[in-house]
Nucleic acid binder design. Structure first.
Lengths: 219, 219
DNA sequence: TAGATTGTTAATCGATTAACAATC
DNA sequence: TAGATTGTTAATCGATTAACAATC
């Protein structure tokens, strides 16, 4: 098992980054079932990709397998956990306590994985003061101060579109390392802040497209 | 303005399908601001892609612009609306009335766009009978019969992972054209059913990766 | 007309797949 | 050892970008 240092590579394709969590999910499943080893061929079949792709993807980060044997499931799972940064703790603040914000605040798996919502903000007087997922909702006016007092790694935006950019600016100024954006907006953030979007509406439109063009080919 | 017929093309890349809703969102915004025309250069700058990409993408569906002038914003918006199938009505059923399911059922923009949740199902006795987003939650046992009585275009899965495949099977058997899956599972569906996943947990892991590897390059 | 911008073809770039030597 | 499977290089495939003739 050899790990690769960053210097070895020019950059990790976004497509690979998107596949790593899928590998991780399947390996966790196998690990829970106490499967000890798996070959790239077997894993590929389970996931629905090519075995080449799995080996190529993993090779960007090191050599985790053994010729003639395959991969030790739990060892590979832990390596990917480390590559994804899931072995580190990440405090988060959530801005926007609407239905989606509530759903995220109540999602138990985040805490289990070390992703911890330590504060929730909203602008509505009826919502401020409520307890959601064990956390009291604060006035969004206090967001800036809160970040000064206690910096967090990740800011979650579940606000309406029209205020999302303003919140992103406050979060960036407050020193978050990443923004997880659920608002249907193209946010501009400084270079040192990473942005990950979940655009639910766009996903539904993509589904609609696929249905309408089902007869025709698409890739 | 010329539309292209399906026969002209070999298939639409998934990457293009994912960009169409983004174009649509920006054009809607411009249209709301009563902007009349826009060039591919201006639109590209606004969205953060190349002008080549916009023209190349659109050319897969037809010729919607005018040399020397650009595109009529509202005309192009309506064309993309049509391409995405947003001009047609789509009835949906939602299975799994947890926090995420509630959030979706309460999202007003779906109905506005013709996506209509006509039934909600859950397995928990405490939840069955509740009214969510104006719709009464039914026992998931009744899902199969319900689909027989009233077919729907789209099935939404917001259940836990372990029952997601079973629900997908019932939905597919019940004749849905597409499944919008929020469960962290790799679902297998028949060829004539299209699948669109929203994997929130995987998105968070991707964000985590980007943060951890921020110093290093990735694309 | 002159200038601007499209639609499309050609060139480039990057990602996926195939193949195979290395080796457990 | 013989068989299996990795890690990696080479070949293929596809998507993005550049360039430009057509034309509004």
């Amino acid at each position: 098992m050899t790990r690769r240092t960053p210097k070895d590579r020019e950059g990790i394709p976004l497509a690979v980054i998107k596949r790593l969590p899928i590998y991780y999910r399947h390996l966790t499943e196998l690990s829970d079932k106490e499967v000890e080893r798996i070959s790239s061929r077997e894993l590929a079949e389970k996931i629905g990709v090519t075995q080449s792709q799995i080996r190529q993807d993993l090779s960007l980060f090191g050599s985790f397998g053994q010729q003639g044997y395959g991969y030790r499931v739990d060892e590979l799972r832990i390596e990917i956990e480390r590559i994804l940064g899931l072995d580190r703790r990440a405090d988060m603040v959530l801005v926007g306590a609407g239905h989606l914000g509530r759903a995220l605040a109540n999602y138990p798996n985040f805490k289990k994985r070390g992703f911890n919502i330590i504060a929730i903000f909203d602008c509505s007087p009826e919502v401020i003061g409520q307890i959601i997922g064990g956390v009291r909702v604060q006035d969004v006016q206090e967001l800036e101060d809160s970040l000064l007092r206690r910096p967090v790694k990740i800011g979650i935006i579940t606000t309406p579109e029209d205020v999302a950019q303003g919140i992103a600016d406050v979060l960036a100024k407050g020193g978050v390392e990443g923004i997880w954006n659920f608002a249907p907006a193209t946010l501009r953030v400084p270079d040192d802040v990473v942005l990950e979007n979940v655009h639910v509406g766009e996903s539904l439109m993509a589904l609609s497209f696929k249905i309408e063009h089902k007869g025709e080919l698409y890739k």
